[in-house]
Amino acid sequence: MTRDSAAPEVRIRDLTVVYKTPAGELPAVSGVSLTLNPGTITGVVGESGSGKSTLALSLLNAVQPPGRIAAGSVEIDGLGDVLHLGGEDLRRTRGRKVGYVFQAAQSSLNPLKTIGKQLLDLGRSHDVDDLRALVADAKALLARMGLDGARVLDSHQHELSGGMRQRVGIMLALVLNAQVVVLDEPTTALDMITQATILRIIREVHEERALTTLVITHDVGAVAEVADDLAVMYGGRVVEHGPITEVLGTPRHPYTQGLIRAIPRLSGDISLARALPGRPPTLGTLPVAGCVFRERCDKRMEICETVEPETVTHDGRTVACHAVGRPAPVKRREYA
């Protein structure tokens, strides 16, 4: 199959998403700017509540109430600003242009309909004329992922294993030839072998179809296997962003450093893995002024209390930290 292989670029600019709470509107994502280079896989890591899923939903302008996109833009080549789409335009974009693999792909299927019927619903929703070809594409994709397409399409959700459902979710996101694919925690709740398979499939399909892919996860190890770029989120901000080998090899932001230190090594003493001190912030405990990470930071300075660090880009990497800018502290090179 030939496709126009020009993968689109995705530019997120100054995106702010707020959630309405009894304490007022609190930002889950504040002023995030992130560029997904065409044809790359960008990983987003962060702890629970860091705003990564909210960021993922913003790419489809699908932030759910009580959340609301307060400011910013999400520009996708060929689509314009997704945040300005609404109604039918937005619906047609979802699924057709931007594929979304759901966080809980285990339960992202209608329990009462066979996968095949849901595939036809998808085709009809996007005015696919040749439904036979769509089914054939779906079977090919499923076969590509090591499944018996005919059998899967004839099954109900409960007849499939978790890994199979996840692959069905990926198939449904890709079958309409979307060129931007968002995967929200694609391997959570799967066993290690299935995880590895899914990640390999993501990488292969991504390269075959020349996609621009965003993978959201809290698992640094998982993302390291597939991503080209890595963005680290903390408290609703992207604190570091750059090519993955560099970000993981020479982490600059103290949070990234802490995150990497917290991973236990397969070889070596488990006590060397050190958990980050303190707790991840919640919407309510996020500091209003200054750096959001300062409470847990070992490089805390006076300026961190009052001034929020600006995102600074140099040699292809973006870091938001007052302590960076001096010679980058590269203490634990052995993790490279």
């Binding site: 699908a62 619906r91 979802r94 699924g95 339960s107 299927l109 329990p111 619903d121 998808l122 979710g169």
Partner: peptide
């Protein structure tokens, strides 16, 4: 989840 998923697939 499957209702949100259906919306995100543009049904």
């Amino acid at each position: 989840d499957f209702i949100l998923a259906a919306e995100l697939r543009g049904l």
